[in-house]
Amino acid sequence: MSKYLIAEIKDNRPVNKNHNLLVLDSPGIPETPSPGQFYMVGIEGTNDPLLKRPFSLFREGNGEIHFLYRIKGKGTGLLRQMEKGEKVSLLGPLGNGYPLPPKNITPLLIAGGIGIASLFPLAAKLSDSAILFYGGRTGDELLMLDELKGMVKELIISTDNGSAGKKGTVIDVLNIFLTSNSQLLTSNLLLYACGPSPMLEAVSRVASEKGIKGYISTEGNMACGVGACLSCAVNTKKGYKRVCKEGPVFAIEEIVW
């Protein structure tokens, strides 16, 4: 069961210059969300912005629910200005989360930019079994590094300009890792990716070339979040599917690029 409610902001603090962490009081949220699920968050009392914005679950517990979000446009620009005690509308949890890996499988998590928000709770759940590849354009865009370090087996960061970690894209780094660890059987690996669309497409290519299975979390312009409006279509081998309902997490091989 998802739920629609008005939630109070407990905190809304900058994490860096264009990302914030939103902490909501979540009494009455009946269901424990799974990593990869999302919520629609709405600003009340205005028609501009009109629609709610989909945010991945970042963290939950102790009567709180956390969202890590990038300030991108009008909606998130207004949200950033909201303060403790103010209220937002919250619809969720929605969609399907990441299926967990079977035993003895090494999960490789691939996060690009704000894609870390969706993979963070998965990394937490997998505790020290996951290897996380986390890339951004510059070092100061990488978020929550200290927490992530303590969470995963290995954290491999990369930046486009080399200002932190390895220079190159997260895909470059993933390819190097797979080549230099060729003793790892691809059948013992499982990919989990979230990030911008070109990155997901590249992950799919790597997966198909190397024969590695896995999951990606997709995005789409979304209006309702509950499967009614058919806005957030994603092209799959079985035709268009809804990001909000059949997704946002899909098996990599399902998506048609």
């Binding site: 312009n221 279509a233 268009y240």
Partner: peptide, 23 residues
């Protein structure tokens, strides 16, 4: 009907545009 390719909607001031394609 399979509908139109995405993106199918965008938000505009106090409204939204849609072209779902009658899926």
């Amino acid at each position: 009907k399979e509908g139109n390719p995405p993106p199918r909607i965008c938000e505009t001031s106090c409204g939204m545009l849609n072209s779902i394609g009658l899926q």
